[in-house]
Nucleic acid binder design. Structure first.
Lengths: 204, 204
DNA sequence: CTAAAACTTTGCAGCGTATGCACCTTTGGC
DNA sequence: GCCAAAGGTGCATACGCTGCAAAGTTTTAG
């Protein structure tokens, strides 16, 4: 797959991907080293050896070079959700939909953990992540409503999606901060705890 | 209390509050009318009859004039949490801690619903809200860890706080989008559903 | 009542982010 | 090779935001 794509694509597209990846990597590295405000778009562009103007041909804002591709993630998660049999409970369906995205991150563990560390160190980026996820969340709410046969304005779909997102976020943060477990395992544990009603560990 | 504050404070502080409120209100009104990018800081300052430079003496960024006072909210929620008996389960403790903040919003219903509508229409602001809440979330995680006697790096406190936050957010959005219910009622329903393990409505 | 102290407002200069436009180079199909 | 399409670049411009110093207002002290 990977090789196919690389050989099929022309030189132009290959260079584009390269440039994009170089910009994202440079941005991440520089910000991890110096902090968000000590890195300008010009610094990043220089490190990737393109003009500052070109940076904005690839990313609409500086932050976007840091937070990853929320659109791609959205498509992947929605496709995965559609592939889960409709008779599965909503929460379980969401768990399965997330697993795919999560295993991808596991593959690029180094990049993703760097990204997560940078993001947690700069809450404003955390906000940007949420911005990207807002669209995904709306789409998931619709999908869950359709799947469960609930009216579009029922409280349940919005709630279960918000909670599932919280579980994903908690698992990823935990994973990034040095926990040795596999991300998928952490995600499963979070979902299991939620399905049990989040019992207080002292009593349950 | 309110009256005491107003009469005790000198003219200077009263004017400051006035200016701050005028800026926030003007920002909210203008953005609701025209959209975020069609309103400049100068527009807002003009509407509040101060210079643009003065705007930045009150709010560090344009967005901050729109999203409200996360610091104040944080203090209130933390105090409320501390007042809940330690033997209450973590999830229930968080529900009670949120109720106070929520009733405050209910009091200023008009302002808050305008704010929530503006925020949901501009996801980037939703991100800003989260940025403000990130600090609150960290503090809540610590408080829950202490309260339950769990180690600071256990998965449970982070998960239960993230989920409770999701419930609060879902309830507020639902409340803002025209639902006639009281906000506190919507919050209680969300928490009840979560405590039951988010059963799929088709089966349970 | 007055004068000093403390604080607020303001203009200005300057940096960084972001966008639109025109020009140039590279690429891929013919 | 040639041409159309697309990416890269420089320039001009608008807005967001900060530091500084001057000017005005409120408070406090004598």
């Amino acid at each position: 797959m990977q090789v196919d794509e690389l050989t099929t694509l022309g030189r132009r597209d290959r260079k584009k991907r390269q440039t994009r990846a170089a910009l994202a990597a440079a941005a991440l590295r520089l910000v991890a080293e110096r902090g968000l405000d000590q890195v300008t778009v010009e610094d990043i562009s220089e490190a990737a050896d393109v003009s500052a103007r070109t940076f904005f041909n690839y990313f609409p804002t500086k932050d976007d070079a840091l937070v990853g591709d929320s659109e791609g993630d959205r498509e992947r998660v929605l496709r995965a959700l559609a592939a889960v049999p409709a008779e599965q409970p909503a929460l379980e369906a969401l768990r399965r939909a997330f697993i795919g995205a999560v295993e991808e991150a596991q593959g690029d563990a180094e990049l993703w953990q760097l990204r997560l560390r940078v993001v947690t160190q700069h809450p404003v980026l955390l906000g940007r992540l949420v911005t990207g996820n807002a669209t995904t969340e709306r789409a998931l709410v619709e999908a869950i409503a359709a799947r469960t046969g609930l009216p579009a304005d029922d409280a349940y779909p919005a709630l279960v999606v918000a909670v599932a997102g919280a579980a994903l976020r908690a698992a990823m943060i935990r994973w990034a901060t040095g926990d040795a477990h596999r991300l998928a395992t952490l995600l499963d544990e979070s979902f299991a705890t939620i399905a049990a009603g989040l019992p207080d560990p002292r009593t349950g």
